[in-house]
């Protein structure tokens, strides 16, 4: 929210139109150089992965790696999905944590949150605008990865319809539909991380604390999954929702694990947003 909107909003006592708030927030976030640099670096990931995998599979010496990489040779449509799954454990959560940190903790650190809290915008609406900004940019990040991945995949790896994990060759339409589905699923998981990051962001005035605690949490979750003694904890960990997403490229799609993953992310999303709302509402202005 820019200074002008603030001034304009205080000049007239009526509520600021939500659409304008959202557009302003988004414009403000997209103008930050670090956002653009982050997105630009993210766009390099599919390019590097595509080139690397095409070199690895080019000599016909067999699979390029484990898991999804094993079937990626000549399977260019799979690259966006591969890169999305590659970015999901760390890169996408990192970006959404940075944006969430800027949203509340960053504004507090700059002293600008005080102005926002006394503005004629309800605190719930303020949080909604901030959450929208994080969500929209997370989606933009996923779109960037997907589009660059798709183009790189078709150029470097080539191939027609996507080859599924089950060994079937999917039609072009089906392949694109699955890419779209992965985009939605991955975006939603990123939103869950972003919501938790917003909650932390509402509690601190140091953006760095937000980013580092989100990263520490993710790494801790992934370490937990290494110990079989902690197996009982698995169903509660957000990171355990990410492996089953690979079921999207199984044929036919088993929907149950996808619903479970999305349900888990929805719980984190709800908890994160609720905690953020609680904190923002009770915060002294």
């Amino acid at each position: 929210m820019t200074a002008e909107t603030l001034v304009a909003a205080t000049a007239r006592p009526r509520r600021a139109p939500t659409g304008r708030l959202l557009a302003s927030e988004l414009r403000w976030m997209l103008r930050r150089p670090r956002t653009l640099i982050g997105l630009g670096l993210l766009a390099l990931v599919p390019v590097l992965a595509g080139i690397g995998l095409s070199i690895a599979t080019g000599d016909g010496s067999g699979p390029a790696g484990e898991g999804l990489a094993a079937i990626i040779g000549g399977n260019g449509l799979l690259l966006p999905i591969f890169v999305l799954f590659l970015s999901l454990p760390l890169l996408l959560p990192l970006l959404s944590a940075v944006w969430a940190a800027d949203g509340l903790a960053g504004e507090t650190a700059n002293g600008t949150l005080r102005g926002l809290l006394v503005a004629p915008v309800g605190r719930a609406r303020l949080l909604a605008v901030k959450a929208f900004g994080v969500a929209a940019l997370s989606f933009v990040a996923v779109v960037v990865v997907t589009v660059v991945g798709l183009i790189t995949g078709l150029i470097t790896l080539g191939g027609g319809g996507m080859i599924s994990l089950s060994g079937t060759t999917l039609s072009l339409g089906d392949s694109l539909a699955r890419i779209g589905l992965v985009m939605l699923l991955v975006t939603f998981q990123t939103w869950a991380v972003g919501a938790v990051a917003l909650a932390i962001s509402a509690c601190t005035e140091h953006p760095l604390v937000v980013v580092s605690s989100v990263l520490a949490g993710l790494i801790t979750f992934q370490v937990f999954s290494l110990f079989s003694a902690l197996d009982w904890l698995q169903p509660f960990l957000l990171t355990s929702a990410w492996d089953p997403l690979a079921n999207v490229i199984s044929d036919p799609i088993p929907w149950q694990p996808l619903w479970e993953s999305t349900g888990l992310a929805a719980c984190y999303l709800l908890i994160g947003l609720s905690l953020a709302l609680w904190r923002v509402t009770t915060k002294d202005s």
Partner: peptide, 11 residues
């Protein structure tokens, strides 16, 4: 917000 947290945990 409290209800939201509880719902999420219950979920």
């Amino acid at each position: 917000a409290a209800a939201g947290v509880l719902t999420g945990v219950a979920g």
